[in-house]
């Protein structure tokens, strides 16, 4: 096989691909994710894809490799070039993505933020769980489990993002409202499970009397469980409050590690995000802030929630 052969075949393949994309004259929606591949994001992305399919639009899904902001900037610029009708985006960084988002808006392309907000841009809509409200629910539950003055570990998300900041604030405010003397030991992460595990390991070594661990996301809870196993702690000895309602989180609850989970309606976030982008592309009026709601999952209602939210299909513990 000579090079000419290869090149001509490649050209034919590429031409047919391009013809296929030109043949559809309907709306084109770009869904740009932050490159996270955990279960929570799989559900959000699944919901988004499903909504795109249901609406019969041309649905482009692209992701920022390694969660790298400059790559996401480039993708947004490329989608402006691609002349898509609307963009739904899960920003890698709330502020950092704003220059590119402003360019898209200036080019007349509506931009809907999914799960994480964009700061510094007048975006079309922001679709997400109200993180403060959901974390309030988590904090109130935690307050009911401990006595005033008890020690609590809180595993943060990325505090450089609005999501991480709001979840921490919601939890701490609600807990402190009822238990003003509770001592909160903070484990800082950038949504990294290993950071969470390492942080909890050292916090537990320094404080053997921790009563409860709460997390900004379920991956952090997975790290906390690994740390507790390593320290020889049995399920339920230290209470664990998850956040997300992800398959892994609900599995932990069924195994007895988690006692509560402030669940987001993950698939709904992706779906409503894309539906809102489609509505905006059709020049319909959309709300500037859409809350997709939260739900406190407890061992008593975990099975029903898992079934209703579609999380059950991803769970390992039936």
């Amino acid at each position: 096989m000579n090079i000419k052969h290869v090149v001509s075949r490649l050209a034919v393949a590429l031409i047919s691909v391009s013809l296929m994309s030109v043949a559809h004259a309907e709306l084109t929606i770009a869904y740009i994710t932050n490159g996270n591949t955990n279960e929570g994001w799989t559900l959000i992305n699944g919901g988004a894809k499903e909504a795109g399919k249901k609406a019969g639009v041309k649905f482009i899904e692209l992701a920022a490799e390694k969660g790298e902001l400059s790559k996401q900037l480039a993708i947004v610029e490329d989608m402006i070039t691609r002349k898509v009708d609307a963009i739904a985006i899960a920003p890698v960084d709330s502020a950092g993505i704003s220059p590119a988002v402003n360019r898209a808006l200036a080019a007349g392309i509506p931009v809907v933020a999914v799960d994480t907000n964009v700061t510094g841009s007048k975006i079309t809509s922001y679709v997400a769980t109200d993180n403060i409200k959901a974390a309030n629910v988590q904090g109130e539950w935690a307050a009911g489990q401990i006595k005033d003055g008890d020690k609590v570990i809180y595993i943060t998300g990325d505090l450089g993002q609005s999501t991480g900041q709001e979840r921490k604030k919601g939890f701490v405010d609600a807990l402190k409202a009822k238990r003003p003397h509770a001592k909160i030991i903070e484990v800082s992460t950038t949504w990294d499970q290993t950071q969470a595990q390492n942080g909890v390991e050292s916090s537990l070594r320094a404080n053997s009397d921790v009563k409860l661990i709460a997390c900004a996301w379920d991956g952090g809870a997975l790290g906390a469980v690994a740390a507790m196993k390593g320290a020889g702690i049995k399920p339920g000895e230290i209470k664990l409050a998850g956040f997300d309602g992800s398959p892994g989180g609900l599995d932990m609850m069924k195994q007895g590690w988690q006692q509560a989970n402030a669940a987001q309606m993950l698939a709904k976030i992706g779906a409503v995000g894309v539906e809102t982008a489609i509505a905006a592309a059709k020049k319909q009026k959309v709300e500037a802030r859409i809350d997709t709601g939260a739900f406190l999952v407890l061992p008593s209602n975990v099975d029903k929630f898992a079934k209703d939210s579609g999380v059950a299909q991803f769970m390992k513990v039936k």
């Binding site: 390694k66 969660g67 790298e68 902001l69 400059s70 900037l73 960084d93 950092g96 704003s98 950038t190």
Partner: peptide, 13 residues
């Protein structure tokens, strides 16, 4: 300048 922001995370890989 391009990101209008800076952080220790940038320029990964």
């Amino acid at each position: 300048g391009r990101m209008d922001s800076s952080s220790g995370k940038m320029a990964q890989m």
